[in-house]
Design a protein around this nucleic acid. Structure first.
Lengths: 224, 224
DNA sequence: CACCGTACTATACACTGTACGTTAGGAGCA
DNA sequence: TGCTCCTAACGTACAGTGTATAGTACGGTG
């Protein structure tokens, strides 16, 4: 039987199954077939195992989601240490965005669940450390962290969502026609700016534009 | 049979069923039981009708989601016309946030689908009009609109999600213990700022903090 | 009245997550 | 070695889901 080790029960796998293997297989399936098409039965089948075998390692589907999310967060690089703090903040935000773009399922994994897990905490630690080192007080650092995080999350999720929509020709066609059916009298600005709106939905420039707005506002509050 | 009227086919309802009634019933169910527990069979049952009856008015579940979203967007007030443009922008963002808080399902309805529908266009028109009137060029207005929208969406969605988590005692307890199990040596800032982080997750002050950062950055780019 | 389009029904299918009870095989001890 | 416990994994089953397909009955129009 498994011995307790540092207070944690190390289960004795009898077969090739393990929590880490399940997480990696789940991640593969999410990236191959999309987060929506992901199912416990799918990953169990991929592992050649009954659906209920997964419940030995995860208490339910959400628990597996959390594990996959934390696994992905572990791929984030460390904060560059030799740079002015605005550049450090920019680097953290950009690398989170990049990770979300490389693993689109991360957007949905981050959206619906609270943050937990060691890797996730490590990321928060990096950003909070930069802000504290820059001299911001506790409350401002926490507020800024939340603001930056929700901006990156919202902005990049939106970008991923729109990119997916653009790939579906049927949905994209319906979106175009519904856009073009708007009367130029009732919606002058929307109709006039339609090309710009389409062009500014996503992309590095759009992301940096918003990030620069936030950082510019933040630098006005730079402590001493 | 129904006659075509202004190019739109007006179907002849035989019973009390109608697209608007379905949307209102769906909205009621979403707010009562949560967006996740919502189902087509649920709203059909509420209306005393078979599940397939809804497919006469909506092509699928997502189509119904879009209709509910646009219905909610129609509740947004018009932009105040007699105010400096930063106050107008603030008002638009705040009223969208308020609507999302009053109707938590709106967060999920906005997150997963592209924007379409007349009421949604009306909201975009309001914000874009303010930005154009303030003198911003087309590209900057579009970029700013996208930035503000994604900030409001991400920030308020996060707030709603965390508030829901806090109401579930089981999930909340697990979150607390996972937070407290973090070593103060590995995560000094997270542990030190834990109370601030908990306090700054949501609330008007947190929202306004980020919004003010954005607006401060934007005012640095005010045209002439 | 006859007819036809259509609002709605009934049935069915392929799925989902997961609760419950069972089986089989490794580990520890007599 | 043989006994016992623990537990990883299995099998079955259930209550749901969205929706494809075929059928039914009713209202407006000829």
């Amino acid at each position: 039987m498994g011995h307790t080790w540092l207070g944690l029960m190390a289960r004795t796998p009898r077969n090739t199954l393990s929590a880490d293997l399940i997480v990696r297989t789940a991640l593969e399936l999410m990236e191959a077939k999309g987060t929506d098409a992901f199912s416990l039965r799918g990953v169990a089948g991929e592992l050649g195992v009954g659906p209920m075998a997964l419940y030995t390692y995860f208490r339910n589907k959400d628990d597996l989601y959390d594990a996959v999310r934390d696994h992905l967060m572990g791929l984030l690089p460390a904060v560059p240490s030799d740079a002015p703090w605005p550049d450090q903040v920019r680097a953290v935000c950009r690398s989170l965005r990049l990770l979300m773009l490389q693993h689109p399922c991360l957007a949905q994994l981050l959206a619906g669940r609270p943050l937990s897990g060691h890797e996730t905490a490590r990321v928060a630690e990096g950003l909070l450390g930069v802000l504290r080192a820059a001299g911001f007080d506790a409350e401002t650092a926490a507020r800024t962290h939340t603001t930056l995080f929700t901006y990156v999350l919202g902005s990049t999720s939106w970008e991923i969502q729109m990119a997916a929509e653009r790939r579906d020709p049927e949905a994209w066609r319906r979106l175009r026609t519904s856009m073009e059916s708007l009367s130029a009298r009732d919606f002058p600005s929307v109709v006039e700016l339609a090309p710009e709106l389409a062009r500014t939905t996503g992309g590095d420039e759009q992301f940096d534009y918003g990030l620069d707005l936030l950082l510019a506002g933040l630098q006005l509050r730079t402590p001493s």
